[in-house]
Amino acid sequence: MTDRVPVLQIGDVLLVSIQVDLEDRTVLDLQDDLSKRIVDTGARGVVIDISALEIVDSFVGRMLATVAAISRVLGAETVVVGMRPAVAITLVELGLTLGGVRTALNLEAGLAALRRAVHTERPDRA
C-alpha cells in the first residue's frame, strides 16, 4: 500500500504538503484526491508545499503543472510554495519552466499570491 498525500482544508484553501518521496502511483492518487476535494469543498485556492521535497524528476515537474491546470479548470488557483534552490536548478536543467504555475517562497507568500490572484480575477468573472 502506497502512502497518500494528505489534503488539508483551511477555509477556502486546500493545503497539500508533500512530505514523502513521490512515486508515480502517489502522484496519480494525489491528482485524484485533490480534484475530488476541490469539487467537494468548493475551494478557491490550492497551496502545494514542496519544501520537504529534495529530489525531483521531470514526472514530478509535469505533475505540478497538471495539478495547476486541473485546479484552474475546477475554478481554484494553485500556488506552489517552498521550492528548494537545488530543486529549482534541477528543473531548469531538465528544461522545465513550470510556466503557468504560480510560485511563492513560503506558505505566507503563497497565501498572499492566492489572494492577489483571486482579487484580480474577481472583476473579470462578475
Binding site: 500556488v79 506552489v80 510554495v81 521550492m83 534552490p85 529549482a88 536548478i89 528543473l91 531548469v92 519552466t97 513550470l98 504560480r102 510560485t103 511563492a104 517562497l105 507568500a109 503563497g110 499570491a113
Partner: peptide, 8 residues
C-alpha cells in the same frame, strides 16, 4: 527561470 520557480 529558476528564481521564478521559487516564487521570486
Amino acid at each position: 527561470v529558476a528564481a521564478r520557480m521559487m516564487g521570486a
